[in-house]
Each structure stands twice: as C-alpha cells, then as structure tokens.
Simulated assay, not measured.
Amino acid sequence: MSAGAGQVADATGNWVDTLAPSATRPYLRLARLDRPIGSWLLLMPCWWSLGLAGMKARELPSPWYVLLFFIGAFAMRGAGCTWNDLVDRDLDAKVERTRSRPIPSGQVTPVQAAIFMGVQALVGLAVLLQFNRYTILCGFASLGVVVIYPFMKRITYWPQIVLGLAFSWGALMGWPAMLGRLDLAPLVLYAGAICWVIAYDTIYAHQDREDDALIGVKSTAILFGERRTRQMLTLFYLLAVVLIGIAATMAGGGNVFGIGLTIFALHLAWQIRRIDVNDPALCLRLFKSNRDAGLILFAAMLLDVALPRM
C-alpha cells in the first residue's frame, strides 16, 4: 500500500490517519502512536521485572506500578523514536519505507521535533519520579544507551545489541520498584531480554535489508543474511528462554510459570519455523507477534503468584 499525503508508508490505515486531528498527526507519528508495537515491546521487560519481583515477594504487583510503567513506556518510546528520527533524518530520506516519516517529508521541522521530544521526556520524568529513589536512579542510568543507539548502525553490524540494552532496561526497573534493590535475578532477566530483543529486531531489520546495504547502514539482518538468520534466531531465542527461566527459578517461580515459559518458548519456535526473510510483510507480522509472547510470559508470572502452588 502506498502512503497518502502525510501518511507514513509502513503505517497506513491506522487510527492516526482516520481519527486524529490533522495538526496532531505528524507528532503522533513521531511518537509512533500510529504503530504502538514498539511501546509494547519496551513495556514487556518492565512488566516482567514486576512479575519476577512478585514471584520473589509472593504478592501481586501493584496495579498502580503496572499503569505507571505502561504510561512511561509509551512516553519514553515516543521520545526515543523522535530522537532516532532527528539523528536519522538524512538516512530516512533515502529509504523507501521511511522517507515519508514526518521529518524527512517536511511535515515537522527538526526544531519542532526537538521540542516535542522534550515534552515526551518530561512525561517520562513525571512517571519516573513516582517510584522510589533506587528505581529513579536506575531509570536515569538508561539515558546514555538511549542517546547512542541511533549512531550504532553506522559503525557496527550489531546495533541490535545496543537496542537490546536500551529496550530491555525495564527488566532492571520493576524489581527495585517493588523491593527497593537490585539482585542477581533481574540482572539475569535483563540478559535474557537482551537476547529476545536481538532476535526480534533482526526479524524487523530484514524489511530494510536491501536499502540498508545500499546506503551503508549495518544490521544483524545484513550480517546474518538469508543463510544464517534462522540459526541465529534459534540461538538468541534459546538463550532468552534459558536465561529468563534461570531468573524465574532464582526468584522462586513454580510450575505455573514453567508452563507459561514453555508456551512462550513454543511461540518463539513458531516464529523461527515461519520466518521467510524475503517476505517483508511476514517479517513485520512475526516481529509484532512478540507482544503476545511477552504478555504470555507476564501472565504466567502473575498466575504463578495468584494460584496455589502445583
């Protein structure tokens, strides 16, 4: 489907295009509210960390904390995407899928985008300040990784590692929000989440593999290519399942969580079996399915706390 006036090529026909006031649409697109899957994927490690702490404390996470992380993930993903678009505006203009984004298409000036990024960051700060001091410090510590990520695709074929460091940071946030400290279990969860991000973003990057190669942008999709992608997805998804399982065991997770982890693993295996790196639409669909995988894992954590031990 081609993009109409003001639309983004890979996100047409959404609520922003049909319902939002015209003046707000470029900003909503900058924040990626027309395609919120990235916000959901940023949120998942936050909720996993809450669930992990809940298994440790044998109590369900506060609904207030669940809501705060939801708002914070959408605000900070929006700010991060706006920063990414500011840094990448010249590259985006050279790629078919991204040249219709608000900045390269001229819908928003760089100054306007920078101001909007600041507003979103302030919303994120307001959310962060609702937590205890330890969690606030953990949140501020993530900013360095967020700032450098857009530059990594210019210098390494592994920018997905840096994205994993940034998008998995929530694994270090929910635990201290509930328990006021960091332990080994959330660190292991963080490592598992990083592996998960590397794999699913490799799937996503295959949509732009040919354009990226032409303009000199690097990614694991280009590095692995058609021949090795399935093998590397298997490796990173397997590491994710093992590390998340270890983290849950350290937190006292039981059989209910084990069942959920198995379903999560089967979902990842389904993605590996279905992947066709030469089918961009399928790659996007499999990438988006990771929200469901993440929700399965979080539900398993909550049920492990709420249900009697098996």
Rank of each mutant, 00 (worst) to 15 (best):
L42M: 13
L268P: 02
G180F: 07
L129N: 04
L179M: 12
E226V: 13
R99K: 15
R285Y: 10
G170L: 12
P26C: 11
G80F: 13
I296C: 11
L238W: 02
L143A: 15
V217K: 05
S49K: 03
G72S: 09
A193S: 15
F70N: 00
S22N: 11
F74L: 14
L189Y: 06
I203T: 07
A141N: 13
G139P: 09
I203Q: 05
W40N: 00
P159F: 13
D304Y: 03
L187A: 06
P104I: 09
L243F: 09
P36L: 02
M310A: 07
W40T: 00
V188E: 04
T234A: 13
A247D: 05
S219D: 10
A299G: 01
G164V: 08
F70I: 02
L125M: 10
C46V: 05
A293G: 12
L50T: 04
C283S: 11
A281K: 14
Q107Y: 11
P159M: 13
R97T: 01
I275S: 08
P63S: 00
F74C: 10
L43K: 01
S49Y: 01
L43H: 00
E226P: 06
A20Y: 09
L235E: 01
L143I: 15
G80S: 14
L214P: 00
A221I: 09
R291F: 04
K288P: 01
L143P: 09
L239R: 03
F151H: 07
I272F: 02
N255T: 13
V256C: 02
